[in-house]
Design a binder for these strands. Structure first.
Lengths: 241, 241
DNA sequence: CCCACGTTACGGTCGCGGCCGAAGAGTCCG
DNA sequence: CGGACTCTTCGGCCGCGACCGTAACGTGGG
């Protein structure tokens, strides 16, 4: 007879996992890494405003705990989130921690304002699209009957065909669901994540429907992308700017 | 222009939330409360093996942080998880913390073995069914075309009708999704959660398809429930024992 | 009315863990 | 081969927070 993992083990596992994120510096690391890219240890240290030695120790703990994956290249140590499941976990926690409580605060400088505006307009969230762009696409897919959100969150058969027609057929892979809702921080509504979300984002960048602004996680829609999204999904052009 | 919540705020919110669960005693509280019932402060203290004063302070912090809801009744203070979203969060974290890492350990005593067996067989998970029972029902619904798991996780129209026919029509309510997958600790596969999962569990207890064993979260299927589940969903009777 | 029990408030102890700086190991470049 | 750079290791400092015991508080029962 299969036995459950003992309750002590679950308890300490939960506490240990939470402890990893309970430190401001490590939390900042994880949120930064939510952009899906790999950062070097030094970049993370500067980003969080701590000494390199401190950052190094934190990274060790996060890797040890299975949240991060590290890879050495020359004199750099590249670090990224371990997998999509971890990204999902952090998103969920952040979404629960952030919202409602206290209204969004006004950016202090013009520079900050335009950066925040760009992020609110469109950005990547780990490996899929978020912000107004992500929501607009998700809503359009729902209205066209490609996605079903009323009874859960799943692609329809038409949705599967749509992806195939796009040249990005979806293959079920391991544990990761084909479609998942990911709560959008700025829009407070779910956008498309999972394998389909990743495929769509990948395709959008590949086909130059949108492009990264500088090296940030913010993205903007190209004129070509605007045409494609309007034509393929009926996304109102206004929602993309 | 709407601005994002500042990154500092999100960071400290995330760290603060994680810190609540980063303590073994508080983690134990939350896991105990996952049974969906309300516990008194004293019960939690004894359960975790700490002094009442310690438990009280922990409860304060958890309530303050929005994870728990407390309610005074006479000289008792009843405490439960704040809402389904919090329950979901804790489940997700526990599921990520527990599994794979280290195989399940053997129960030491006969008593522990039979308790673990009962929990593995069937139990409640917050407000829905879990364990082999929960999985069997979820799988049966999927095979009957009431639930779609291949492209995400959502009820089908047939599924909606099935619930209506059961006398438990599902009404969309607030933010909570109608159907959601909840990763089962023992079975490592998703079982039905969300509004539908809660409705099904409620109905199952109401119609005495199953009943709680003592005052634990473990449930067992009644002969009547066995008939009903086999007839309505084609659940193999063997999966219910 | 008083006692028992569950709960809360306070003060004090103790250990864990985050932080830095300085020195060392490894890598790339001129 | 030496200098610049990145990252890691080590030692030591400091503060936060988990814990308990004690004492007060409130409720419900006898």
């Amino acid at each position: 007879m299969p036995s459950m993992p003992s309750s002590e083990r679950v308890t300490s596992g939960l506490a240990a996992l939470a402890a990893l994120l309970a430190d401001e510096t490590r939390a900042r690391f994880c949120l930064a890494l939510l952009d899906g890219r790999a950062w070097t240890a030094g970049e993370l240290a500067r980003h969080a405003g701590v000494a390199p030695s401190t950052a190094s120790a934190h990274i060790d703990r996060l890797v040890e705990g299975g949240l991060l994956a590290a890879e050495r290249q020359g004199r750099h140590r590249y670090v990224r989130l371990a997998d999509a499941q971890v990204a999902h976990l952090i998103e969920d926690l952040a979404a629960h921690a952030a919202p409602g409580h206290g209204r969004p605060d006004r950016p202090r400088t013009l520079r900050a304002a335009s950066a925040a505006g760009a992020l609110a307009r469109g950005r990547t969230c780990y490996d899929h699209l978020a912000g107004r762009l992500g929501i607009a696409v998700t809503e359009a897919m729902t209205e066209r009957g490609l996605l079903r959100q009323d009874t859960g969150f799943a692609l329809t058969d038409a949705g599967l065909r749509w992806f195939a027609g796009l040249g990005a057929p979806l293959a079920p892979s391991g544990r990761r669901p084909l479609a998942r809702g990911c709560l959008d921080w700025t829009e407070r509504r779910p956008h498309l994540a999972g394998i389909a979300g990743a495929a769509l984002c990948h395709h959008a960048l590949e086909a130059e429907w949108c492009e990264r602004i500088g090296s940030t996680r913010a993205v903007q829609v190209t004129p070509e992308g605007e045409r494609a999204l309007t034509e393929l999904l009926g996304v109102p052009a206004a929602a993309l700017r």
